[in-house]
Each structure stands twice: as structure tokens, then as C-alpha cells.
Design a binder for these strands. Structure first.
Lengths: 145, 145
DNA sequence: AGTTTTTGGTTGACTAAGTCAACCGAGAAT
DNA sequence: ATTCTCGGTTGACTTAGTCAACCAAAAACT
């Protein structure tokens, strides 16, 4: 039974992403998934930096740099220089960014609702906490590493 | 709490894939993830077809066609024509395919073990069954679809 | 002070994954 | 016999993710 873990996971995110994307498009959001994840970071962290995003999402810094470039081009975020530190940049949502995140939140909610239709809150919470435990286990360095 | 679902999932497969890849490389397996998933299909389904893989893994048929091409090139699988139906192909593992799948199974086991170190079998099984339920919910067409 | 190291970020070049549409030839249906 | 469907292939493209080289600002180190 437990050998289905990998496949179950893989198929789940595939469908999850698909549903998110579909719902997003229906709401007129044309931004890629990873960009939305980054936007969420910037939303939650005041004066967010590229490194913050990279660490929080576990993405390569090059990937983050490119995402930020896109988001700046699309005017969803703005960059200001830190007064005390000249190399790190402070990212914040623009008006347009705040507006799109409102809609993203809706999309999130719809998808989550659909996905957990037949499940209890307890089941979902167990699921999430198991997921977080597995994540921790995976990232924990092994003795022979 | 349940709003972490998306992030938790995303990070989990990210790390899961990463660990799988790393362990695979350590075992001398240089085949991409999706190819391994396809190989598993071919292993489990006697006289597997491209459509079988596509349906089972939820992949686009073009993607499957390309994966099969690669696997044929690498001589992990072989194709024979069906005697009664001339357009569908029957795929099976070669000797090399069987051999690599042995090692893949090891990699799978190691990764799974690491990932579920601190968890009980019951927790894992609940996790999987919740994942499968969510998958079903996502793929269930909505009334207003 | 001056030099090395670290840090935050950018770019190039690439692999892997996934999507969409057009297409082909073989069967089945009409 | 012609149309329709089916299994598969290809082209062209977007999104993800990785790795290494690089640059300039800023700490750290004698």
C-alpha cells in the first residue's frame, strides 16, 4: 500500500496545479504558478527580498531572479533600495499586485474547497501535518550524508 | 491552517523529487523521473500501450510518445506490433529494463523509508487515502462545468 | 589601511515537464 | 466507398528547475 505514495503524490499535485490553473484562467489571472507563489511571499513578508523568497519556497535564486524580473515588468511588485544595505532589495506589492492577490485568494479558496469536499477539517489537518513531517524527514541530512 | 495545503504539497513533491533524483544518481540511474514512472507502468501492465501509460499517469500523449522514444533508444523497453491490431503497440521491458527497475525499486524504498522515518504505517496510509480522495474530488466534474 | 571572503543578485545555458494543435495511417462505422 | 474515430507522432511552445560563472556591495581579516 505505502508504495503508492509516490504516484499518489505526483498525480495529486498534477491535478491540483491543473485545477488551480483552470480556475485562475477563469478568473482572468494569466500569471504562472511559481509567480503566484512568489507573490504570496511578497504579500506576507514586509520588505521581502529575493533571498527570502528563495528560502521560503525552496527555489533556486536564479529562478527567483527571473520571476522577480517578470513581476516587475508586469507591475505587480515594486523594488526599492534598502537605505542601510545597498545590495539587498525590498520588494512590495503594487496596487495591481494587491488587486491580483485578492483574486488569487479566491481561486485558492475555490480549489481548496473542491479538493476537500468530502473530507473533514481534521483529515485535512492530519494530511498537512503528515506532509510537513515527511518534508522535514526528507530534508534532514542522513548520518552517512 | 488548511490554507497551507498548497504550499505543503508543493514543497513536499519538490523535496521528494529531489531526494529521489539524488538517490537514483547515487545508484547510477540517470533516467529522468517521468521516464521511470513510465517504466513502472510498462512493468506492471503486460503488453502496455502508450495510451495505457497516458491514462494511468495522466500525461499528455505527446509527452508519452517522446518518453517511449527515449526508452526505446536506451533499450530499456521493446515494442512489438499487436498481431490483431496494427496501430496499437505492445511495450515490454527488455533485460536492461528489468535490471534498471530492480534498482529503481531500491531507490524507491530508500526514499520512502527516509520520508516516513518518524511516521506510523497508519499515518502513511491515511495520508495516501486522503491524497487519493482529494485527487478524485479534483477530477470530479463540477455541476457548473 | 588593503585584501580576501561572503553575500545578494543576475545571466547563460541547459534539462525536464507539460500543453496544444496539426497531422498520419489503420480500423470501424455509416 | 467515404467518413469518423483511434493510437500515435511531431512541431512549437511555455513553465520549471538546475548549475556554474559572474558582479558589485559589504563584512571580515590580518
Amino acid at each position: 500500500m505505502t508504495d503508492k505514495l509516490g504516484e499518489a503524490l505526483h498525480k495529486l499535485i498534477h491535478s491540483y496545479k491543473g485545477k488551480m490553473k483552470q480556475t485562475a484562467i477563469e478568473s482572468g489571472i494569466i500569471v504562472p504558478f511559481a509567480h503566484i507563489r512568489a507573490l504570496k511571499c511578497i504579500q506576507h513578508i514586509e520588505d521581502c527580498s529575493a533571498t527570502d523568497i528563495s528560502k521560503r519556497l525552496g527555489l533556486d535564486k536564479s529562478q527567483v531572479a527571473r520571476i522577480i524580473k517578470d513581476l516587475l515588468n508586469d507591475h505587480y511588485i515594486e523594488k526599492k533600495q534598502s537605505p542601510n544595505n545597498h545590495r539587498s532589495q525590498l520588494l512590495n506589492l503594487t496596487e495591481a499586485g494587491i488587486e491580483i492577490m485578492d483574486r488569487v485568494q479566491q481561486v485558492d479558496k475555490i480549489t481548496r474547497k473542491k479538493m476537500s469536499e468530502t473530507l473533514t477539517t481534521e483529515q485535512i489537518e492530519n494530511f498537512i501535518s503528515t506532509a510537513e513531517t515527511m518534508l522535514k524527514n526528507l530534508n534532514k541530512p542522513t548520518t552517512q550524508d
